[in-house]
Computed example of a mutant assay.
Amino acid sequence: MIVSTHAIVISKLRYRDHDLIVKCYTQQYGVLSFLLRGVLKSKKGLAKTAYFQLLTQLQLVIVYNPNRSLHSIKEAKLNHLYSSLHSNVSKSAIVMFLAEVLSSILKEEEENSTLFSYIETTLLWLDTHTECSNFHLLFLLNLTKYLGFYPENTTVDFPFFNLQDGKFQLKPMGPYTISGDNFNLLKQLLDTKFDELSQLKINSKQRQAFLNMMLQYYELHLGDFKKPKSLQVLNQVFG
């Protein structure tokens, strides 16, 4: 079946000598993997690989077979041409990190148009704004809305937050209760929009501590989630 769909590249892997396997999050079918045969063999093919940089937004015409794990692409073109996402060092580090997170957590071959729209629009925001040092913190927090474990905010005035339960509490209960800087920043980010991120004043130590807390939050709620290997690079860039 030949279909057209928007897609966001979340990983790519060299296969054999001249092939690529590219994993995309598609608007219509969720996560799909594609085999690009011979794309590394010729200059013309190499030019096409520029379309498959991490988190690139594409318009694809694909041959879709629900009974196969690898699909093929008949036509690919850019849906949005980024101006800075792959050329700015800070943004490139965020892209590498978030692509690894998304590749780890997005597994289903099913449509989720609201999640797709969230990823699509926030990447466009990142591409067009200069202040990005805290983007990934808010991105990860808001992403939990679509994954089913966004912090329950009916008791947001309580002085502790339990990572395992995803709830604010009156007193600490269990080993995954937080307070202090991470708690304060969590409450602040719950009320922050992307356009307000430039007003967020935290240092690199606070940023890394909160990011580690968020990754632990993901680990507690997604059984097979592991800390991204690109975390070290991200911390070096924003350290």
Rank of each mutant, 00 (worst) to 15 (best):
N134P: 03
T177F: 00
K12T: 12
V237G: 01
L163H: 00
E152C: 05
E100N: 01
N162P: 03
E219T: 08
F168N: 08
G45T: 05
L222A: 08
L46E: 09
L140A: 12
S83Y: 02
L36P: 10
G174P: 03
Y150L: 06
K201D: 08
L137K: 05
V156A: 15
Y82K: 04
K44R: 13
P175W: 00
G239D: 14
N134G: 03
L189A: 08
L197H: 07
F149K: 11
S113D: 09
I178A: 02
S4K: 15
L123D: 11
L55E: 11
D195A: 04
D195W: 00
L231Q: 11
S92K: 12
K201Y: 06
L36W: 03
K145S: 14
Y29G: 08
A47T: 09
D127F: 04
K23G: 03
H221W: 02
S103C: 09
P159I: 01
Q53P: 01
K12V: 02
Q232S: 14
I105A: 03
K227F: 02
I105P: 07
K43H: 04
F52K: 07
F225Y: 04
K41M: 06
M213N: 08
V61C: 10
Q216Y: 06
V95A: 04
L46T: 06
K44I: 05
H71Y: 01
M214E: 15
R16I: 01
K205W: 05
K226C: 07
E196P: 02
A93Q: 00
Q28I: 02
S204D: 12
H6Q: 14
T56N: 15
M173Q: 13
T5N: 02
L40E: 07
E219S: 11
V3M: 08
M96I: 14
T155E: 15
S84R: 09
Q199I: 00
H18M: 00
I2T: 10
I178Q: 00
G174M: 00
D19M: 04
K12C: 02
L170T: 02
Y146H: 15
N182D: 10
L58A: 11
Y25Q: 08
F139K: 06
Y25F: 15
S117H: 13
L40Y: 03
M1G: 08
A99Q: 01
V63D: 14
S113W: 02
D17R: 09
P172C: 01
K145I: 13
Y176D: 13
R207D: 09
Y25G: 10
F161W: 09
H18C: 05
Y217S: 09
K77H: 12
A7K: 06
S117D: 12
V9L: 04
A209M: 04
Y150T: 06
H86G: 04
C132F: 07
H221M: 02
T49Q: 09
Q27G: 07
